[in-house]
Amino acid sequence: MTNAAQLFDRIIPLEGGHNFRDIGGYPVADGRMVVRGLVYRSGTLSELSDRDHAIMDALGLQVICDFRSTRERERRPSRLPEAARYEIWTRDHPMSAGDLTEAMRLPEATPETSRAMIIEAYRDLAYEQVPSYRELFRRIADGPLPLVFHCAAGKDRTGIAAALLLDLLGVARNLVLEDYAITDRFFARGCELVAKDPFGTKLAGIDQRIWEPMMRADPAYLAAMFETVEARHGSGEGFIRDELGLDDVAIGAIRERLLA
């Protein structure tokens, strides 16, 4: 299997960032490549340093799409410069994906049951995030770029958005799954951030082996998402057309902008 990270050094080294990387540099079937430097994905931006701000400025970012819920943004606001030039898009909505921690407290809970719950959650997550994904894809079609989209870990909501976008562009499925799995490089940092978040108190007293699957970028999770949307819509593009409402013009514009 090709190591996706070797195709292009896509990770942006931020001191206080988490899982910030370029989605560009992947080949597609017709010989073109996903353009670099236009669309980025990330985890939380709540601990960015002044040096990180300078790096983001150098990237020329125009827009930040924050997929986090209202409560998440209140608990851990992004640390951005007051004079930032980029637009910040958010939407008010409750915490996503349900709270799996109560089930992880049950006496019969195991790492295997936790993994199975997350796989099932991934079958619904793309649908739960339709309003955010609709906004993201429309902005990529005709809004200012470069753009970064993010959630907390940059794995679930962000990972599905990135996978649907790369799939729409024609990136091979094995590379889409490998791109998702790069998040596992940030596992320790992700656990550190969870511990700092008030949400982390919900994990107190739960054996780490039981909640660890929640922090992993297991390709089986993403495969469950694709299996579900393909069964319902025929393809990832079918989901984008049916649920996000993008037409031929918008989809064509995304491909025209992001492929070269």
Rank of each mutant, 00 (worst) to 15 (best):
M1S: 15
T2M: 14
T2H: 13
N3F: 04
F8K: 14
R10V: 05
R10I: 03
I11R: 15
I11Q: 15
P13Y: 14
E15A: 15
G16Y: 05
H18R: 15
H18N: 12
N19S: 11
I23G: 00
I23V: 01
Y26C: 14
V28N: 05
A29T: 02
A29P: 04
R32K: 11
M33G: 04
V34H: 02
G37N: 12
G37E: 10
L38Y: 07
V39G: 07
R41T: 07
G43K: 07
S46V: 07
L48S: 06
L48K: 08
I55Y: 09
Q62E: 15
C65D: 13
T70E: 14
T70R: 13
E72S: 13
E74F: 15
R76A: 14
S78T: 06
P81E: 08
P81L: 05
Y86P: 01
E87S: 03
E87G: 06
T90D: 06
D92P: 06
H93E: 09
D99K: 12
T101I: 08
E102M: 13
R105G: 06
R105I: 09
R105Q: 10
R105M: 14
P107N: 09
E108H: 07
R115T: 02
M117Y: 00
I119D: 00
R123D: 03
R123H: 08
Y127V: 03
Y127A: 09
Y127G: 07
R134M: 12
E135N: 10
L136Q: 03
A141M: 09
A141Y: 08
G143C: 07
P146M: 12
L147A: 05
F149A: 14
I160Q: 09
A161D: 13
A163H: 08
L169E: 10
A172Y: 08
L177T: 05
D184W: 00
R185K: 11
F186I: 02
F187M: 06
A188K: 05
G190N: 03
G190M: 03
E192C: 08
L193P: 00
L193F: 04
V194P: 00
D197V: 13
P198W: 04
P198K: 09
G200P: 03
G200A: 12
T201R: 12
L203M: 08
L203R: 02
L203C: 05
G205Q: 07
D207V: 00
D207I: 00
Q208H: 08
I210G: 04
W211C: 05
P213Q: 02
M214H: 01
R216Q: 10
A220E: 08
Y221T: 01
A223P: 01
M225I: 05
A231E: 14
A231S: 15
R232A: 13
H233I: 12
S235V: 11
E237F: 10
G238A: 14
R241W: 02
D242P: 03
D247M: 06
I251P: 01
A253T: 06
R255P: 00
